[in-house]
Design a protein around this nucleic acid. Structure first.
Lengths: 308, 308
DNA sequence: CTGAAAGCGCTAACAG
DNA sequence: CTGTTAGCGCTTTCAG
């Protein structure tokens, strides 16, 4: 033992993994780390996983098809004991790959059929954001989100929430006001530009992410319009920099989502065989943060005296 | 072979690693993924590493002491073939751990003695940013950076560049204008608050990161001052959201830094034994992006007619 | 309760 | 060039 100490001996992990049949590492399947939400979740998950003595293997899979390719390859199965999934994915043909003898998986911030998940109530949160705009008197409320054909379930949930709130207020969702921002700042800016050049302007915009919202904000200002004077804007995430910009938004605990997901997975790994193996899911709270980018609709602000 | 295909056979990586003596994976030592620059570098590095067929093992080490602890533990040695390091670190006592039989390492965006690195010329870039302010007539130019005692070499380089530009303009760096923002938005906001409450206001601020700059921007606006009317502000990074905010800043190719670093490492790993094993370093270009947060100093803008 | 031995599933080096 | 065999360095089981 003393000799080992002096010779800086360290056990060969691979030998130990081979003999023990456990890798003592968990995979982190992430869409793209350059997106704020993903990075937050990964950061939180990594901290928990590392604290539990596991290695973190990072898999970045951009594009919609790749996660499935990744899972189909099933090479990951022998290199990790479990998976934290932060990739939105269409709910199809995945169960096959995940369910037969694959390592346990927990999704973080996303929703996959049959898997335990840690996330927020996207639909309710989006409805809250939209209702905020409705309550301010807005009637032409645009949505900056994704391309529905990509089948991103989170985006789908948020779109439904948006429609819920409109419908509840007696407003009819206008397909022309539902544009694709690709969940990037640039995409948000371009989406807003399309809204601006497409006839009747919306008086308010709900963006499915703060990054897209800030892109939209830039476009609005460059067009000579004022926020919230001409257009109100609500985001989703509560990105640290959104606060600096006084963006009204929905706060979601991104980092905590990663932490909780990792904890759930670790629990499942360490409790292996000890019975309760059910796939628990957790829903964390969101909160509307009203800052300086939302204001009463002008058409409403001055109704007394106006003809109609 | 056909049977293997049908049975969904996948080779056991750990057995292969044990037998071959190579792990076919590289470690990514990162400070904190919730910082934009780190996430960008990791994202770029991961893409290259994965494309080369290696696994990525992620190690997140917050705090100044941890990287050293990590390296001292040397547990990582047997689990990765090489290391991409994105952790700023004081240039001390590290060489010992890295040089004796440790796997090859490349630093990305940071500078460690004795290691190949991929980065920008922080000193020159900081000087460029500061000179931009000097050229606008500013004389009281504050610096939002880190605590110099932390010994972050990048921050040190940027501080020197800042001082270079001041000195070259015949200005004397004022220690009272050099504040610690901890490289976070919140820290930048607090640092700016300290500057505001500390007597004579600076007319311009150079922040060592965009995140700190946006925090400072918020503080300035909340204080009722205008940008760039009362205070000019330059950042460092060219964060995607900085563009949305019209922040003048120094552009650095964060993602590319990660990609190139990973490529260098992979080359070194695959060329093992084939001779040229020298530790090449790469310096990538930066660029000043003048946007809307910098303007001529008021004291200078109206000199004709003023007494002095 | 301590100590020896038999694999874990591959790779690489050997003989045929 | 193909087929066989001896380890890689642990863990775990079994005998002492």
């Amino acid at each position: 033992m003393e000799a080992a100490e002096e010779l800086h001996y360290v056990a060969d992990l691979n030998a130990s993994r081979l003999a023990a049949g456990r890798t003592l590492s968990v995979g982190l399947l992430v869409n793209n780390l350059s997106k704020w939400f993903m990075a937050q979740v990964v950061s939180g998950a990594e901290a928990v996983v590392a604290a539990a003595g596991y290695d973190v293997v990072l898999y970045q899979t951009e594009g919609a098809a790749e996660p499935r390719t990744f899972l189909a390859a099933s090479a990951y199965r022998k290199r990790v004991d479990g998976l934290v999934i932060v990739v939105p994915s269409p709910p199809s043909e995945l169960a096959d790959h995940l369910l037969d003898g694959a390592p346990p998986a927990v999704t973080a911030g996303v929703r996959w059929p049959g898997l335990a998940s840690v996330r927020v109530d996207d639909r309710a949160a989006a409805a809250t954001a939209t209702r905020h705009l409705v309550n301010l008197g807005h009637e032409r409320i645009a949505l900056i989100g994704d391309d529905p054909r990509e089948g991103n379930p989170q985006a789908g949930d948020r779109r439904e929430g948006y429609r819920d709130a409109l419908t509840a207020a007696g407003l009819r969702p206008d397909p022309g006001l539902d544009v694709d921002g690709g969940f990037t700042a640039r995409g948000g800016a371009e989406a807003m530009a399309r809204l601006l050049s497409a006839g009747t302007l919306p008086t308010a915009v709900f963006s499915m992410s703060d990054e897209m919202a800030l892109g939209a904000l830039r476009t609005i200002r460059l067009a000579g319009l004022s926020i919230p004077g001409d257009v109100s804007l609500v985001g989703f995430d509560d990105h640290e920099l959104a606060g600096c910009t006084e963006l009204s938004t929905i706060h979601q605990p991104a980092r905590q989502i990663g932490e909780v997901a990792a904890r759930l997975l670790i629990e499942r790994l360490t409790a292996a065989g000890s019975g309760h193996d059910e796939a628990r899911s957790v829903v964390l709270d969101t909160r509307l943060r009203v800052r300086a980018t939302t204001a009463p609709c002008r058409a409403v602000r001055q109704p007394a005296g106006a003809p109609a």
